[in-house]
């Protein structure tokens, strides 16, 4: 338990940022049906596989339609 306490100051911000990013991106994918490239299924797969911020960032750069 003490060990976890030592990690908490870093663990909490990481979890908060990554989870909020994941939720934001998932909601964004489900609300839109036009993407720069790819389909909804593809982006859901990418985001869920690369959950720890790589997937969501890839979606935001290459998938999110800016219109």
């Amino acid at each position: 338990m003490d060990e976890i306490k030592e990690y908490l100051p870093m663990l909490i911000p990481i979890v908060v940022v990554q989870l909020s990013l994941l939720v934001y991106v998932l909601v964004h994918i489900l609300k839109h049906d036009h993407y720069k490239t790819g389909s909804r299924a593809l982006w859901l797969a990418v985001v869920l596989i690369g959950m720890n911020f790589v997937g969501p960032v890839i979606y935001l750069i290459f998938g999110r339609d800016e219109e």
């Binding site: 870093m10 911000p13 990481i14 940022v17 911020f53 960032v57 935001l60």
Partner: peptide, 16 residues
Amino acid sequence: MVLGIVFTLLGIMAPW
């Protein structure tokens, strides 16, 4: 927002 998150996460990742 995207860049802010990327820079924040990379900043935490190093000591983590």
